[in-house]
Design a protein around this nucleic acid. Structure first.
Lengths: 203, 203
DNA sequence: GTCTATATTTGGATAGAC
DNA sequence: GTCTATCCAAATATAGAC
């Protein structure tokens, strides 16, 4: 017998402004670099003076933290949207395409989520928890595809992270390495299959 | 009939001090992060006041530039020290071990040389030239091993950069991904050999 | 909630005495 | 070459009026 939740127009408004500030913050770091987030510039982007931002965020790090949570949430949803068909090759390729695309689509988001670039910043437990959940989804998916050997998992993350990294570092916005994802996963699976069979037959 | 080059004790002293400042700069960025190089702190590390640094470097960017040149020189020498035996697998493994080790041994050097992290900084043509030379040595070595297909080269750089990247981001100082280098190169060569043969037989 | 004003710190860089 | 003194700009953050 729950009725419609009471709307709080003031809280809605506040949340909308917070989202607006975050969107402007993403714009700024994409333009100036992740470490060059300035509260003055950010405020002017949303038509405020710098001190007004403190009504919405306790500090600059709190803004980074909210950005981290947002990026992790996006990653979690993108991960969940990857279809599972049971065809190991196709499924792995789809997952890797998602990951490399996710990273190369937004390099600063990649830097914020997966690298330690901002001196003195680390995400709050709540924000980090979202990222942990997302990585667990990845692990479950790979286990479902029969991949459990930790070293093989490390090899896979290296291959996909390497493609993303090269794309971002050497040809941002392009697809020179993105277009190699399917072939790289083929290469990886040929190798892993072989090793697994060898182990099996030698038993 | 060239005699011993005239020694200039003043110039030698100056060069020694420059080297001392650069060493202290590396210490600082390793401790505080690449983007957190402060002239005040740097000066205090070498027992100077900040303005005195301007007797040795024109600006902060000039210090970054000298660091870039130094790192590129180290990379060039490390690259030239990799032995070539003619055994493609062993040679590729040796080259990849060197690269991944070079990167993971000093993450900030890796960031300075291979990523674009410092807002507004790019190396001078002279410094950049050293890096270009080093990459040409790599390319020549790979061509000598029969690797010329551009996409296969891109795949190789992705694999090695990925190993280095994961090592640095997830377990700095360890060898979890470093220890995968030889296997990764095996995987890569199995794949490339197969593709090359296929192309050949289908002709 | 937003502003102005300001505190405080820190940064790179320059002038000029010694 | 090194120093002190200083400039100038920019940063985060706070106090308090409205």
């Amino acid at each position: 017998m729950l009725g419609t939740p009471k709307r709080d127009r003031r809280a809605e408004r506040r949340e909308a402004t917070r989202a607006e500030i975050l969107a402007a913050a993403w714009d700024q770091v994409r333009a100036e670099g992740l470490t060059s987030l300035s509260l003055r510039d950010l405020a002017s982007r949303v038509g405020m003076q710098a001190p007004s931002l403190y009504s919405y965020f306790d500090s600059k790090h709190a803004i980074y933290d909210a950005m981290f949570a947002q990026g992790a949430q996006e990653f979690l949803e993108a991960e969940r949207a990857v279809p599972v068909t049971g065809d190991v090759l196709r499924d792995l390729q789809a997952g890797a395409r998602m990951f490399v695309g996710f990273c190369s689509d937004d390099p600063v988001r990649y830097q914020l989520l997966f690298q330690r670039l901002i001196p003195g910043f680390e995400p709050s437990p709540e924000s980090y928890g979202i990222a942990v959940d997302a990585l667990q989804v990845v692990r479950d998916r790979l286990a479902g595809a029969g991949l459990t050997d930790p070293r093989h998992l490390d090899l896979l993350t290296a291959v996909t992270a390497g493609l993303a990294n090269q794309q971002i570092s050497n040809e941002p916005g392009g697809d020179r390495w993105v277009s190699l994802v399917d072939e790289a996963i083929e290469m990886y699976l040929e190798h892993v299959d072989k090793r697994t069979k060898q182990k099996g037959t030698r038993k």
